[in-house]
């Protein structure tokens, strides 16, 4: 899972030592990696902290829509697979929180920012998962979009983030394939099952395109992030790539993407497609997604219900330490 940069605030001014800044920019331009102990501009640190923590939050919140379906998976095989996938998402969240912590923000601060609603996470998780076919569509489309976003991030300029992405990408491939396999099974099933698959595609297609973030001309931080090699491709480039590889995959399933404007454009060597409903996108970013409140409530409840376990473990460690000291 991946969330793209969601903050729309104006570009941060650089008030840094020009010599240091120049040396930093030269290193990044030469595709060198920046490591935690290296000097970096404050704006770089802030942008990365925000992006990596948003990414981590998305992995954690991303467990909720799928976790809902573990007990209702149609077979033991599907149950084991979904359980393994949700477990991976937790792992991805942990890799990413660790990477973000190297920039100087504590895990506690990040988790509080998520729970207070201050921090963003991917808009995609604020849509409901209504049928089993949604689990197929999520793996295929949502994880497909995530892979599209994450593959270039393996070469992002911040070392700990890049290394976390290498691990994540290696593990993510199974997520997409199990989703596509569910879709294949539904499409080879009864007419009702195929209708469910089409319905899931209809509902997840546009939210998946939104995962790439606002259009390039509405993405004020893209230029800076590209120059600093935090991002390697623009939102629109990645969205186009996603459409180009996904439309034929839908064809292979015998399904139709819910956009009458999708049409192969020989001249550009890619598909033309319709406009995303940006009003809906910004509403969901603001927390007006269909199940946004439910997600955050579930997340906070899980945290609060787990508090006694964390407290007991800490108390036990303290007791052992006291005993050793005595």
């Amino acid at each position: 899972m991946y969330t793209t940069e969601l903050q729309k605030n104006a570009q941060v001014q650089n008030l840094e030592d020009p010599a240091k800044l120049e040396a930093f920019e030269a290193r990044v331009a030469a595709d060198e990696f920046i490591e935690p102990k290296d000097w970096m501009p404050e704006a770089y640190r802030r942008t990365l902290t925000r992006q990596i923590s948003q990414h981590a939050h998305s992995e954690i919140v991303g467990m909720l829509p799928e976790g809902n379906w573990i007990s209702r998976a149609p077979s033991l095989r599907r149950k084991a697979i979904l359980l393994a996938k949700v477990q991976d998402e937790a792992g991805h969240g942990l890799y990413l929180y660790s990477a973000a912590e190297t920039l100087g923000t504590s895990r506690q601060e990040m988790i509080e920012a998520l729970h207070s609603g201050k921090a963003k996470y991917s808009t995609i998780f604020n849509y409901p998962t209504l049928t089993w076919a949604d689990i197929g569509a999520i793996g295929w489309l949502v994880d497909g979009a995530a892979i599209m976003n994450q593959v270039p991030l393996q070469r992002t300029s911040y070392g700990p983030y890049a290394r976390a992405m290498v691990r994540v990408c290696k593990e993510e491939s199974f997520h997409q394939r199990q989703g596509y396999e569910i879709m294949m099974a539904m499409c080879a099933g009864t007419a009702d099952q195929k209708r469910m698959a089409q319905d899931a595609l209809n509902r997840w297609w546009w939210p998946s395109l939104m995962m790439f973030g606002p259009t390039d001309d509405n993405s004020p931080n893209t230029a800076q992030s590209m120059r600093w090699r935090i991002k390697r491709d623009t939102n629109d480039e990645l969205r186009q790539k996603f459409v180009d590889i996904t439309v034929p995959q839908a064809d292979a399933l015998g399904l139709t993407v819910p956009d009458p404007q999708v049409k192969w454009n020989e001249a550009k060597g890619g598909y033309d497609f319709g406009e995303v409903d940006w009003e809906e996108f910004y509403a969901v970013v603001k927390g007006e997604g269909p199940v946004a409140k439910e997600r955050m409530k579930a997340r906070r409840e899980a945290w609060e219900k787990g508090a006694w376990v964390r407290e007991a473990a800490a108390a036990y460690a303290e007791k052992l330490a006291a005993r050793e000291a005595a």
Partner: peptide
């Protein structure tokens, strides 16, 4: 099943 090769996807996809 944690590995991508566990899933059979046709070659033309």
């Amino acid at each position: 099943y944690r590995h991508p090769t566990f899933y059979n996807i046709p070659d033309d996809v």
